[in-house]
């Protein structure tokens, strides 16, 4: 564990908490893509299957449980409790266009062809693009509430911090995982446009609004 990795994990945790707070406090999931949240749930379940096979550390186990549980809690709030506020019409991204290619890619490019490893690889590829329905929703409505922007910033920062963690681990430990690094770079790049808007607008107290 190094400082980048810890900061990345905490940023990830913060993102999830911000999202739950936003939905709970406003009693609404307007502006949040249920499609992205479904994809994140798929990511966590397919990645953390090793919870039942491998014990790494208490920290590792607890964080995995928190991610899986909070992900399903978010889905519950969106699709059951505050279903009426869900922005169904704007959340029209077709997730099968992400799920299928990621799965095929995981079958083709993986570190070892075992069920757990293929599913882990699938989750890495899927996570890289899982935010696309959310970004698509923001681009369709042309704006995002400030708390939604904070959520997206924390979520994007997490993988950017992981990139620093991987660079650190390469030099400090000689450890690297090309699949995670490549997918993590793609994931971070997808947020760049949003990062720019966040820094130039939201941090200056303005609402995140896309140019018409």
């Amino acid at each position: 564990m190094n400082i980048f990795r810890l900061a990345g994990d905490l940023s990830h945790l913060l993102a999830i908490i911000l999202l739950l707070i936003k939905i709970w406090k406003t009693r609404s999931c307007a502006g949040i893509s249920g499609k992205s949240q479904i994809l994140f749930a798929v990511v966590y379940v397919s990645r953390y299957l090793d919870l039942v096979t491998t014990f790494i550390s208490l920290y590792n186990t607890l964080m995995k449980l928190v991610f899986i549980t909070s992900s399903f809690a978010t889905l519950y709030l969106m699709y059951v409790k505050f279903k009426a506020t869900y922005d169904h019409n704007h959340d029209s991204f077709r997730i099968e266009f992400l799920l299928l290619p990621c799965f095929v890619l995981a079958l083709l490019i993986n570190a070892s062809f075992t069920p757990l490893e293929v599913l882990w690889t699938f989750s890495i590829y899927l996570e890289a693009v899982a935010i696309l329905p959310q970004l698509f929703l923001v681009s369709k409505t042309g704006e995002a509430e400030s708390i939604t922007s904070h959520y997206l910033f924390a979520l994007g920062s997490y993988r950017a911090l992981y990139l620093l963690n991987w660079i650190y681990r390469y030099y400090a430990e000689g450890h690297y995982d090309l699949i995670a690094i490549f997918a993590g770079a793609i994931q971070t790049i997808l947020y760049c446009d949003f990062f720019y808007l966040y820094i130039t607008k939201v941090l200056k107290g303005k609402k995140l609004q896309l140019p018409a």
Partner: peptide, 10 residues
């Protein structure tokens, strides 16, 4: 390179 003990990152 996959560590035999699994992936330690989240």
């Amino acid at each position: 390179e996959v560590e035999e003990e699994g992936h330690d990152e989240l």
